[in-house]
Design a protein around this nucleic acid. Structure first.
Length: 167
DNA sequence: ACTGGGTAAACAG
DNA sequence: CTGTTTACCCAGT
């Protein structure tokens, strides 16, 4: 996996690219002692990977501004279990500015009472923002959780003009 | 506002 | 297989 930095107005994201596409996306990390240890940046990417890095950067900047990205890089989501892949695919069907509840998403993937399992699958989403797990709220309109921290979830939803109940 | 039971899936052992 | 944990949900207090 080729690890590259993606600069945005909101900070430096980290993307992991494989020969099949974008496999991971991480929010800017708080700089702690030794925070750079895992940041083995990769400069000599192939033209293909460089193109995907630019697609990722453009899509990420659009998404952070609340706009729908015109084009996404290919995604390499092989890591997931069959259930997680169903959930992640369903996530991509939620348009910008719209939300669903964990329970609704469970019904969409054919697991009627699996709201909690859907939450766990969202937490395992390797490509947040572009696979929009932030558009899933709890059934009562509250936020639920977010792997990157609830501040990011609030920020992404606000950029899309979505209203939500404070927690 | 808080509690408890029900629930599906992943994971450790 | 059993136990534990989870970004849940709903009907009761």
């Amino acid at each position: 996996m080729h690890v590259v930095a993606i600069a945005t107005p909101a900070g430096k994201f980290t993307a992991g690219l494989t020969s099949r596409g974008l496999a991971r996306l991480e929010f800017p990390r708080k700089l702690g002692p030794g925070a750079d240890a895992r940041m083995t940046l990769d400069d000599d990417d192939s033209p293909k990977l460089a193109a995907w890095r630019e697609l990722t950067a453009a899509a990420l900047r659009d998404s952070l501004a609340g706009k729908r990205p015109r084009r996404l890089p290919p995604l390499d989501l092989r890591g997931g279990t069959p259930f997680q892949c169903r959930v992640w695919r369903a996530l991509r069907g939620i348009a910008a500015g719209r939300t669903r509840s964990y329970g609704e998403l469970a019904a969409l993937v054919g697991t009627l009472r699996g709201a909690r399992a859907v939450g766990a699958a969202c937490g395992a989403n390797p490509v947040p923002v572009l696979v929009p797990c932030h558009r899933v709220l709890a059934a009562n309109g509250k936020l639920g959780g977010f792997s990157g921290g609830l501040d990011w979830k609030r920020r992404l939803l606000s950029a899309e003009g979505v209203a939500f109940r404070a927690m």
